[in-house]
Structures are given as structure tokens and as C-alpha cells.
Design a protein around this nucleic acid. Structure first.
Lengths: 212, 212
DNA sequence: GTCTATAAGCAGATAGAC
DNA sequence: GTCTATCTGCTTATAGAC
């Protein structure tokens, strides 16, 4: 993974054809940059990662990033796009008994986190939101607006908006604690246990009486 | 506040004595830097804030920061020190009926957040933890280790460590959602309502059955 | 106590050679 | 498709004038 997903290719490397110069066939450089960028953005956030560090990790000249993706921002946007359809998540969470809605939401979150690529994208977004209002707005609209608000509205509870926001707080705090602060017990717990714990809290956020 | 808390003093400004050069009496520059740094670190995190931007906000030459605080790191450490005694918080939260332990913890959090200086320090720490392992470790030790773990241990519940970590997740997520993502309903809710909502969730984290 | 000047380095972006 | 070289502007830190 350290070599960025591209085949080994030093500055003087030569392809299977034995010729020097550009490789025959489709270039793998774009994918190498993409993979390296995901790692760097996930590890350091948007500002922390540099075009140069990404190029280094991908084993590629930094100038190629501008060539393929236009700019650092263009690369970030492309690489952090989650393959998640909000309406699909909403119906998946709502479909079933009301008492397990928190658990189903927790399962979606943890299953998404289990995939290395998705986890990297989510970490990149979370880390970047701290410094980048654009990313913060994206989270507010995409997570609260498109997923959680529709869920709380459909559940027909009081304070739908506040509940959706509290659920978002718990989900982002969970990822923060587990993957950024790297607390011990969360790291050591298996998926079932975490699903139960997070599911219970989310169930409380979404449906428990909250007023006063 | 824009002038950093120091009195107006342009490059050619002169003090009440009418003389040019350094002001008589104790310097206010150190406090001006401290105030400006808190704002900048809270708004942008450790990496996002620069010595120059802090100096500009304080109306002070950036070189003075090194003079007074040794380095950028020294300034950060001094300015983000919370005036909070862990043992005091622990006993405050534990003192009273068990059914309201979550609410008392929520009140401590929200009262700390209500003070502008403390809120800035907490935001600076939260924003910086995303990029800075040193800060992340500090949070793990100080918040989970010194405050929340003692609480869950004293409550004598199962999974004390996991509960403490989940409570930390909720608290940090709450601050993240309210002050970084800036969600609507949380911003519009009054303190009582937020105390009740956060308190209910924390009560669940700390004492509700979680096992399976 | 305060400032200017400068060192040494890294950032993102781009023009143009190959 | 790839790379070298460079532009411009930023960063932290420090030496020394006043």
C-alpha cells in the first residue's frame, strides 16, 4: 500500500515491453493518486495533507495531481464522495420495528466504517470539518438534512430536528472517539457489542422522551 | 476585541507621557497575545492558526510571541489550559441521586461551555485533536482517564470503560455539532432544554443496561 | 520591551521540455 | 503522460538594532 497501488515503477523503471518512457496501456497513475490521497486526507485532514505528500506516497510527481484532478480541492472532493444513497439509508433504517430503529442506524454506521475506503473518506471529512466551513456545511446538509431529519420526521416524535442533531452528534463523536482519540475499550470491542451500545444510545436520541 | 485587548497603539503611537518608545508601566502585550491566540486557536485549531495571524489580531509583532511564550506550541499549551480540577468535577457529578448523574454531568459541560474563555479553549483542543496526536492523547488521559472513568467506576456498572468512552463520544460530538458544524436546533435551544437532552443521553450512556 | 530583517523551508499552481 | 524548474506566498524562528 505504501507504493500507492501503482505497480513498482522507479524513475527509470521500465514496463513489460522493455522500452523506457511511458507505459503502454491505460495509466494507473490516476488510481494511485486517488488511493494515496484518501490515506493522506484521512490521516491529516484537508489542510494537513499536502499535494507533495500525496505525490510522494503515490510514487508520482506532484504536478500530475493538478493534471488529473485540476486542484487539491478537486482531488479532495472526488476522493471523499461516499457511495451512499441517502433515501436508501433512510428506508433501510425505518423499515422494521420501531424499537430497533437505533440499532439499524448503528448497523449502517458501523458497516460503512468497516469498509476501509469508506472509513478513510469519513475520517477525511470529519478531520477536515474542523477547519473547513465548506466541509462542515456538507455534513450538515448531507447527514442531518438528507438522512437523520427524514428519519426523525417519519418517526413522528417531538423535537424532530433536535433529535436528528443529537444523533449526528453521537455518530460523529463515536467516530471521533474510536478513530481519532483512539480510546481503548471501543477499539477492543467487537462489532456486535459496539452495535448494541451505539444502537441503544441512538434509540434514546431518536425516540426516548426528551422534553422536560 | 479586534485590537486584541491592548490599548490603541499604532507604530507611531505615544503613551500618556507624551514620549515615544516603550510604554511606561507593566506591558499589556502578553495578555493581548493570549486573548488573540485563544480566538485564533479556537477558530482554526493549532495548525490552522499562525503566529502571524495571532500577532495581527493582537496588534503586535509576531516576534513578540516567541519572546513571551518561547514558541507557538508554548503559547498553545498555556492558552488551552482549562481551569478545571478533575477530582472536583468527579465528586460534583457523583454527589446526589443516581438517576440524575447524567444531568449533573451535562450541566458541568454546558456551564463550562457557557464561559467564552473556556469554550474557546475547548474548541481549540477539539479542533486540534483532529491533526495532533499530542492533543488527542491529552483528551484521552484528561477527559476519559481523569473524569469519566472515575465516574463510571464509582457508579459500579458493567463495562465502566466502554461507558466512559461513549460518554466522551457524546460530549465531544455535542460540542462538534453545536459549535463546529453549527446545526440549527441546538443553536436555537436554551440552556435548560440542552441540559435535559444531553443529560438524558449521558444518563443512558452511564447507567442504562448496555450488554446484549 | 519592541521591532526589522532575514534565515530556511514548505505550500499550491503552472509553463514548457521531453 | 510525465517530469523539471520556477513563481509567489506562506510558515516558524532567531539575531540584533533601537
Amino acid at each position: 500500500m505504501r507504493d500507492g497501488g501503482a505497480e513498482d515503477r522507479g524513475p527509470q523503471g521500465r514496463g513489460p515491453s522493455g522500452r523506457t518512457g511511458r507505459r503502454l496501456g491505460p495509466s494507473t497513475t490516476r488510481a494511485a493518486i486517488s488511493t494515496a490521497a484518501l490515506h493522506e486526507f484521512a490521516a491529516s485532514g484537508y489542510e494537513g495533507a499536502s499535494v507533495r505528500s500525496i505525490g510522494r506516497l503515490a510514487g508520482v510527481d506532484p504536478a500530475l495531481i493538478a493534471y488529473f484532478f485540476g486542484s487539491k480541492r478537486g482531488l479532495f472532493d472526488e476522493v471523499t464522495r461516499l457511495p451512499i444513497e441517502a433515501p436508501q439509508v433512510v428506508s433501510l433504517v425505518l423499515d422494521g420495528e420501531r424499537a430497533a430503529v437505533g440499532r439499524r442506524l448503528a448497523r449502517v454506521v458501523l458497516e460503512t466504517l468497516a469498509d476501509a475506503r469508506n472509513r478513510a473518506a469519513m475520517l477525511a471529512l470529519l478531520r477536515s470539518a474542523s477547519h473547513d466551513r465548506e466541509t462542515a456545511t456538507l455534513i450538515r446538509l448531507a447527514v442531518v438534512g438528507d438522512v437523520l431529519m427524514p428519519i426523525t420526521t417519519a418517526l413522528d416524535v417531538a423535537d424532530a430536528e433536535l433529535r436528528a442533531e443529537l444523533a449526528m452528534a453521537q455518530i460523529s463523536g463515536f467516530i471521533f472517539a474510536r478513530h481519532i482519540i483512539e480510546v481503548d475499550a471501543m477499539g477492543a470491542s467487537d462489532l456486535d457489542r459496539l452495535t448494541t451500545a451505539l444502537g441503544g444510545i441512538l434509540q434514546h436520541c431518536l425516540t426516548a422522551p426528551v422534553g422536560n
